[in-house]
């Protein structure tokens, strides 16, 4: 293992801002794995820490195939994590909206540039990331439809679902998108949570990366067979939206199978406790996403359902 500083920036009254990377194996730049890019992505840094621990062990045991270098960067934004702010401490910009970066630009453009120079020539890029809406997910791999990444390759993670998502204008400045512009196959890995830890889901994420690395022949690791991810397009999910704002009372969890007609959640009057509306499953499906804040707004997709695995 080679621990090194990927990028640093001097603060005026704070300790130096440092992005730290862990390299395993030597040889061609094979896989780069990036953890949190936002201050609340605690589960994402946790997944990487578990991965670093595992990779250390595997390297000591000589199980990394010759000729492959694997880089893990647990966080590209420790400053925001330390002040519990989602975006950049001074100007509230999102580093994950600054790629490929610019070395003479504003602070977060410089960080993105500094990091991207180190991570752009890898064959595969994996980013642990989060959704802009608060909620719990079924762990899955996500890729963009117009990109360089291949859904079949994404199946090597062995997660139940591979989600293909349409590219939107604002995606063009994300790490995932820019990796692909520079010929890296990029995958976003969503675990169940963001701002709180879920050990099981983190374990699943570590396992998914192990599956992928061994599928690529970069690692000697025995994986169970028979895992065959289902490929689903984002727009084929069924969104269950609220018509009212109020207290959100979920009755299902992410990953649960539901029958047609099953109640999914209630929206309650915050003053009088009455049920303003009950949301039902229109079809027998699997709960893919559930909103996890106690309050909800109207017209919000609080539950997303997906075809059964």
């Amino acid at each position: 293992m080679n621990k090194r500083i990927i990028y640093e920036l001097k603060g005026i009254y704070r300790d130096t801002f440092r992005v730290t990377g862990y390299e395993f194996g030597t040889g061609e730049k094979s896989v780069c794995i990036v953890g949190s890019s936002r201050g609340n992505e605690v589960q994402q840094i946790y997944c990487c820490s578990q991965l670093v621990k595992k990779m250390k062990q595997l390297e000591e045991e000589g199980r990394i195939t010759q000729g492959h270098k694997i880089l893990v960067i647990p966080s590209i934004n420790p400053y925001s994590m330390n002040i519990q702010k989602r975006f950049w401490s001074t100007d509230n910009t999102d580093i994950n909206r600054m790629f490929p970066g610019y070395n003479l630009g504003e602070t977060t453009q410089r960080i993105a540039d500094g990091v991207f120079r180190e991570i752009s020539e890898y064959r595969f890029g994996i980013q642990f990331t989060s959704f802009y809406m608060p909620g719990d997910f079924v762990p899955h791999v996500r890729l963009m439809d117009e990109g360089f990444s291949d859904p079949e390759t994404a199946r090597q993670f062995g997660l139940p679902y591979v989600i293909i998502r349409r590219v939107r204008p604002y995606d063009t400045t994300t790490l995932n998108y820019n990796w692909q512009v520079w010929d890296t196959q990029a995958f976003s890995l969503y675990t169940s949570t963001t701002s709180r830890l879920d050990r099981t889901s983190a374990g699943q994420a570590v396992l998914a990366v192990m599956n992928f690395l061994s599928g690529q022949g970069m690692l000697k690791y025995s994986i169970p067979d028979g895992l065959h991810s289902r490929i689903v397009h984002d727009e084929d999910m069924v969104m269950i939206k609220t018509a009212k704002s109020g207290i959100f009372e979920p009755m299902v969890k992410a990953g649960e199978e539901v029958r047609a007609g099953q109640p999914l959640a209630n929206i309650l009057d915050p003053y009088e406790g009455d049920i303003l509306e009950t949301l039902y499953a229109p079809f027998g499906m699997v709960v893919f996403f559930v909103h996890n804040e106690p309050l909800t707004y109207a017209n919000t997709a609080v539950v997303k359902l997906i075809e059964k695995y």
Partner: peptide
């Protein structure tokens, strides 16, 4: 007034 490296 407060700037970090890169601030415009």
């Amino acid at each position: 007034p407060v700037v970090v490296e890169g601030s415009l």
